[in-house]
Amino acid sequence: MISIGNDIVSLDHPNRGRALDERFYSKFLSRTELGLFPPGNNSSLSLDAFIWLSWSVKEAAFKYLKRIIPDLIFSPVRFILEDFLDLGNYGISGSKPDYGLFRDAPGTLFGGRVGFDSHTLHFKSAVFKGWVHSVVLGDENFKRVVERVRRIDNPSYDDQAKAVRIFSLESLGRIFPNSDLQIEKHPYGYPRVRQKDGKILPVPVSFSHDGSFVAYCFRVG
């Protein structure tokens, strides 16, 4: 089964300041994982951004696997960061990510692997001012992934959920015109896209939102 997962964390959220509290990060990061920080001598990544990036990778990995293991429950400590690389401003598999409104903002990309039982997954993460976003795949081919982060005015849960569906349909509609696409939720909880002929579009999508940011990604081809 093809799958994809993503997660965004708003670094401006009032509770995000807790990241450096050991009681907080020790709930989901082992000493071995903490040893992956910093990712290289010249990395500008701060420890709190690393902690939230690690969280977003684990959450995105959970979303990826939820399609494959329907009864999976999110237990972040069971998702293990195996390696963690600073990829600079652009980069994994030669792709240049496009963060829409944020394409001209300074940001740094990171990549690596995350394990869960016998599964080894691959992640690509971006750290920009104010947010961290991660995408997880079962392989390293991020070239076919469309990922976008958008800022919204009203950060209420209902508005976040509505906005991310509208934005993703706009993006999917450009790639699949005349398909009259609709987003629906699979009984297991993940989103899927239905075409006007009633068939499910064979494109895995993933949504996330936190605070004033919403994000979506999907994999084509």
Binding site: V9, H13, N15, R18, D21, R23, F24, K27, F28, W52, W55, E59, I73, F74, S75, P76, V77, R78, D210
Partner: peptide, 29 residues
């Protein structure tokens, strides 16, 4: 938001003066 679940666990620890380990925390859904 799932990122707040850890906050809730920490607050429960403080409130009840208990320690909730990894395995226990993952069951609190």
């Amino acid at each position: 938001n799932s990122a707040n679940l850890v906050d809730i666990i920490i607050e429960a620890e403080s409130k009840y003066k208990i320690e909730i380990d990894f395995d226990m925390a993952s069951k609190m859904y």
